Simulated assay, not measured.
Amino acid sequence: ADIPLYSTVTGEVATGSELDGGYWCRNLREPVRFDRALDRLLDDGHTVFVEISAHPVLSMPLTDGSAERGG
Rank of each mutant, 00 (worst) to 15 (best):
V13Q: 13
L62Y: 10
S53G: 15
A37R: 07
R33P: 01
T10F: 10
D64I: 14
D64K: 10
L19D: 00
D2E: 09
Y6I: 13
S59Q: 05
V57T: 15
E30R: 04
E68G: 12
P31Y: 04
H55L: 14
S17F: 09
V32R: 13
V13M: 07
L19V: 01
T10C: 10
P61Y: 02
P4N: 04
F49A: 11
S53E: 05
T8A: 13
A54V: 10
R36N: 01
E68Q: 13
S7C: 13
L28W: 11
Y6C: 06
S17Y: 03
V13W: 05
L19G: 00
G22P: 07
R33S: 04
A1E: 07
S66A: 14
D43K: 13
D20Q: 14
T63D: 08
E51C: 08
E30C: 02
G21N: 03
D43I: 10
S53M: 07
E68R: 15
V32Q: 10
A14W: 05
L42N: 04
C25D: 03
L28D: 08
P56H: 03
N27L: 14
R26C: 03
E18T: 05
W24L: 11
E51R: 08
S53W: 06
D43S: 12
G16N: 04
D35T: 03
P31K: 12
L42M: 12
E18V: 09
G22H: 02
G71C: 10
L58N: 01
